[in-house]
């Protein structure tokens, strides 16, 4: 028996929005530790790694580890039927072929349930090595989203350069070039508005705009985003999910031919 209840059901809706454009389908792995998902996009250029710890659910029971393969377009249809203020409960039997979603309104006067057929997915799992990154930058997530959107108008890829002074995003295209520099903030009133840079070595790497813009669909999950960069390895873009989870996107760099 698997049962997970999240009072703040809007978090699950936001998680869905954060992955549904990148992935067609994905397996949700459930264990007593919580819910995990790892999936690559079709082109194997980016990977989504989602972790929601069991401690973040107000009810969590998982008697046996199980994997639930879901079509994300179908899942999205179901979660769109939940209001932002609803509590969401997921339920499945051991070795399930369906999963049930129950949405309860705040006053419990409206309860709806939807069941969805699960699918068998033969998904490749990748071992992601522990990496000490040369630069780790934390910045407001809305700012990152705006920069990616603005610079995407001018070219297909964005070069991210990081030094101890700050982080620079650059684009070059047919009509010209664009650069956005963010300095490390000295002191800000709100932690959510800070830009912080932890740098061992300066780094400059280039990434496809298309994927960066997909990642920014996670912006409503967290006011801050963390970018981890090292020379010649994939970028990691991380958004926290409340106090109990995260969504990490890995993106392979573009290199000179």
């Amino acid at each position: 028996m698997f049962e997970a209840r999240l009072t703040q059901g809007s978090l699950l809706k936001k998680v869905m929005e954060a992955i549904r454009e990148l992935l067609n389908e994905a397996s949700f792995d459930c264990s007593e530790n919580g819910i995990q998902l790892q999936a690559m996009d079709n082109s194997h250029v980016s990977l989504v790694s989602l972790n929601m710890g069991s401690e973040g659910f107000d009810k969590f029971r998982c008697d046996r580890n199980l994997t639930m393969g879901m079509n994300l377009a179908s899942l999205s249809k179901i979660l769109k039927c939940a209001s932002n203020s609803d509590a969401i409960t997921l339920k499945a039997q051991d070795d399930p072929d369906t999963v049930t979603f129950t949405f309860e309104s705040e006053n419990n006067e409206r309860v709806s349930d939807y069941s969805m057929k699960l699918i068998n997915l033969d998904q490749e799992h990748l071992g992601i090595p522990d990496t000490e990154y040369s630069c780790v930058v934390k910045m407001p997530s809305a700012d990152f989203a705006r920069i990616c959107k603005d610079l995407s108008q001018f070219g297909d890829c964005i070069t991210i350069s990081c030094t101890k002074e700050g982080i620079k995003f650059s684009v070059a295209g047919d009509i010209g070039t664009g650069n956005v520099k963010l300095a490390q903030t000295a002191n800000v009133d709100k932690e959510s508005e800070a830009v912080t840079v932890e740098m061992q070595e300066p780094v400059s790497l280039t990434f496809a705009c298309r994927y960066l813009n997909h990642f920014t669909k996670a912006t409503p999950l967290s006011e801050q985003v963390q970018l981890s960069l090292s020379a010649d390895v994939p970028l990691v873009v991380e958004y926290k999910i409340g106090e109990f989870g995260h969504i990490r996107y890995y993106l392979a760099p573009k290199i000179d031919e």
């Binding site: 194997h44 250029v45 990748l126 071992g127 090595p129 496809a208 392979a252 290199i255």
Partner: peptide, 14 residues
């Protein structure tokens, strides 16, 4: 022109 790498160049299959 730049070449897009894939993740298989970095991560091992489990």
């Amino acid at each position: 022109p730049k070449k897009q790498l894939t993740l298989s160049a970095f991560f091992d299959q489990r």
